[in-house]
């Protein structure tokens, strides 16, 4: 095969990854075995981040273990007010789930606004979470939902969202572990709103909100923000200020959301300066809260 690559990036030609072994197991057990045995092995879910990184040779795994042969990992299951989402569930599946919109609007919003149709058709929630892009949408949503990550390995363990995201492209997943499920409680008053980069649709600022409301008053709130720091963070000051605020009191919501990024070392780059991102956190947070105050 002939490369159409460039001499522009000296590290690689931008099109063709280095050689690797490819496996397509049919069970989690088989996948775990391959993961333990394979040299420099990586799990392939939807491939929407890993494959481009391999083409740029930012990632050079020697072994790829494709989970698409384990279809039971793709599901959305409700039991009472508790939801379990299989890690291989595509963004498009979540985005088309009308039930999810009512019961966990924040996740539905994120799935709908993520990437483009091709990315949504192939990309998966588990892959996106395990990738832990600091501008990714799901990490904020997971934090706001207070989700729990079910991880298979030598033994199965549970990791709280707050413990899962460790840094840029860094999670609590160990070398021999696979994220299999994500669980969370229904969040009928929740939303995710972002100010996005026009080309990539990554969040310049993304805010996930889960509210507990009593009639029209906010009793409790979980606010999580992505795009600003190495990891998504909870805006605890905003959460406190929102308690007792009426859902229709726009001015009070706005003032509660002031300083949403307080205490954070906010990133600045050619897409948006640190000052702009910081200011936008307040604006986007207030908008997300207002969406979340109404039933979806």
């Amino acid at each position: 095969m002939e490369s159409d690559g460039s001499t522009f990036e000296r590290e690689g030609d931008g099109m063709i990854p280095t050689t690797f072994n490819y496996f397509r197991p049919h069970s989690i057990e088989e996948a775990l075995l391959l993961l333990r045995q394979g040299e420099a092995a990586k799990i392939l879910a939807g491939g929407q981040s890993l494959i481009p990184m391999m083409k740029l040779r930012v990632a050079e795994p020697k072994t790829l273990i494709d989970l698409q042969g384990v279809p039971e990992l793709a599901h959305v299951t409700w039991a009472g007010g508790h939801c379990t989402v299989g890690s291989l569930t595509s963004h498009a599946t979540l985005a088309a789930d009308a039930d999810l919109r009512q019961k966990a609007g924040a996740l539905w919003d994120a799935a709908n606004g993520l990437g483009d149709p091709q990315v949504r058709n192939l990309g998966t929630i588990g892959g996106a979470c395990a990738h832990a892009d600091p501008s990714g949408d799901y990490p904020a949503v997971m934090l706001a939902l207070d989700a729990c990550f079910i991880v298979a390995g030598e033994k199965t363990r549970e990791v709280a969202a707050a413990e899962f995201f460790k840094g840029t492209f860094e999670t609590a997943l160990g070398a021999g572990e696979i994220l299999t499920k994500i669980t969370f409680d229904a969040a009928p008053r929740s939303a995710y709103v972002k100010l996005e980069h026009a080309a990539s649709h990554y969040a310049l600022v993304g805010v996930a909100v889960v509210l507990v409301m009593s009639r029209d008053t906010i009793e409790d709130a979980r606010i999580a923000i992505t795009g600003l720091a190495d990891v998504p963070f909870r805006a605890s000051g905003v959460e406190r200020s929102l308690r007792g605020v009426k859902g229709n009191n726009v001015a009070a919501i706005k003032s509660a959301c002031a300083g949403a990024a307080a205490g954070q070392d906010v990133r600045g780059d050619i897409q948006a300066s640190s000052a702009y991102r910081t200011a936008m956190a307040d604006i986007v947070a207030a908008r997300a809260v207002r969406v979340a105050t109404d039933p979806r």
Binding site: S3, G5, S6, T7
Partner: peptide
Amino acid sequence: DSAAIARDGAA
């Protein structure tokens, strides 16, 4: 002989 070799050579 090919674009790939030419780019490889350029590097």
